[in-house]
Amino acid sequence: MVTLFRKEIASFFSSLIGYIVIAVFLLGTGLFLWVFDGELNILQSGYAGLDGLFMIAPWIFLFLAPAISMRFFADESKSGTLELLFTFPISDLSIVLSKFFAGLVLMFIALLPTVLYFITVYALGSPVGNIDIAATIGAYIGLLFLAGVYVAIGTFVSSITDNQIISFIISAALCFALYVGFDFIAEVFPEGVFKRISISLGIAQHYDSISRGVIDTRDIVYFLSVISFFIYITHISLKKKHK
């Protein structure tokens, strides 16, 4: 399992695409937060916090996570190496998990350079160091859970198609639907139970709360449930191919 996990990460960094994906992520986030005019610009807002990062990251992740996960199974089943994988003495679940965790770690690596943003706000604060460190760490944890959900969705979608492009598009769409789709549906309902249920099914509500630095066990349980659900159905889909 560890071998498979390492192989997955190594193959990501051995292709130029991997670097381009991360570079685009960093460049996009950076420009929105530090250069472009607007609500997200940290320097313009004058507030010593990384709120902008946690607002924009779910949107940029919509492309980053599918780009990372699109190859997972799509590539293997196209080139036929999936058959080879099945002959290894490891369970299907281990295969899914190693791909999932590889994706999560890659997201984490992509996110790592944003520590420089933190350093910047730390240094520019008035007085220096005027940033809520604990809350920021909490928000980063929220971001990792969000990345987990996106990667789990991406892994699943990748397992049902053998075309990387289709895998990318479908998983981006599915992530988007899960992120804000339920809020749109909720708009239709009048104030009441259905509205509340609909909103709480979406990622947005749980992520918003955690990204402010409030860690709620309900949000964590929600994220873990969604992740396990997608890993489970990936497992089923893989089994089906196996047969």
Partner: peptide
């Protein structure tokens, strides 16, 4: 979990 939950406000 919505019945038994804990909430940690990390903000300073």
């Amino acid at each position: 979990s919505s019945v038994y939950y804990a909430r940690f406000d990390l903000t300073e």
